[in-house]
């Protein structure tokens, strides 16, 4: 039960959606783009978000696109995590997405919704960072395409009225060796103490993390260290820790010290498996 009223719009085109947003915003309706909507629905009930208009993006064909072509794959922002998983289009993304919430919820949670979440985890971003994906963003001045690293800096850097339309991923990453590990406090379902995703290319393995710091990240500096096969695993992990982009997080899921331990153990196992 959402205790306040809002209007619901379901535009059929990108242009219509953006125009709607701008118009509703001008009228002081606090519009929100609605993809899966699960976060808005739950936050609204708890009085943690307010809007008088939601704009559902699921009617826009581009946001629902799912395609593999020779050069690149296209993943619409309004695809659900279950759809992506079941399509097997990008197994790393499927696997990492499968750690989020639970299967039934993932029938509603979308890729775009997850990576734009107000929460700190946004685990679906990890594979997209690892695969150097591009993002297509729509806004008042039309659509633009840019590398994810440019748009995602701790969170999505979207201008007012902008929304994610698609991710473009180089097809060569599709079937690369990958791992995705999620460690929780003590439950099958829930937020991570840490989530680690890896993708291995000719030039070495790539690593991205969620839950470790206050935001998900991939660090090339850390990757460089972790790929120094001549160093013992423990030493690499120790050095990597010095290069973390922010302090290790401490919260009710884990203290910083314990989170560090879980991260170390997870990396130990991952590196051992990769190099076995």
């Amino acid at each position: 039960m959402i205790p306040f009223d809002f209007n619901y719009y379901r535009p059929a085109t990108i242009e219509e959606a953006v125009a709607l947003y701008m118009r509703l915003d001008q009228k002081g309706k606090w519009p929100l783009y609605w993809s899966g909507g699960t976060e808005i629905a739950t936050f609204a009930r708890l009085n943690q978000i307010y809007t008088e208009a939601v704009i559902d993006l699921k009617g826009i064909p581009e946001c629902r696109a799912l395609a593999v072509e020779e050069q690149e794959m296209t993943l619409g922002s309004a695809l659900t995590l279950s759809e992506i998983h079941d399509s097997e289009i990008f197994p790393l993304l499927g696997a990492t997405g499968s750690g989020i919430a639970d299967r039934t919820s993932r029938n509603k949670i979308t890729l775009g919704g997850n990576v734009c979440s107000e929460l700190i985890y946004k685990e679906a971003i990890l594979p997209l960072l690892l695969a150097d994906s591009d993002v297509i963003v729509a806004g008042v001045s039309g659509a633009r395409r840019l590398p994810i690293a440019q748009l995602f800096q701790r969170s999505m850097q979207l201008a007012k009225g902008e929304f994610l339309v698609q991710f473009k991923v180089n097809t060569s990453y599709r079937l690369r060796p990958y791992t995705s590990v999620k460690k929780r406090k003590q439950s099958a379902i829930g937020y991570p103490i840490i989530t680690v995703a890896t993708l291995t290319t000719e030039s070495g393995s790539r690593f991205a993390f969620s839950g470790l710091c206050d935001f998900p990240f991939r660090s090339e500096e850390i990757e460089k260290i972790l790929n120094q096969h001549e160093l013992p695993v423990g030493e690499r992990i120790r050095q990597a820790e010095d290069r973390l982009p922010a302090p290790i997080r401490s919260d009710m899921l884990a203290s910083a010290n314990y989170r560090r331990l879980v991260w170390q153990v997870t990396l130990e196992d991952l590196l051992a498996n990769m190099e076995a």
Partner: peptide, 27 residues
């Protein structure tokens, strides 16, 4: 729970299980 956590409100929508507390009726 009305929070998407417990699944008691699960129905199917176009054959897929769906937590009806996470979906607007209009959707």
């Amino acid at each position: 729970c009305r929070h998407g956590d417990c699944g008691a409100c699960t129905v199917t929508v176009d054959g897929l299980p769906m937590k009806s507390c996470l979906m607007l009726a209009v959707e």
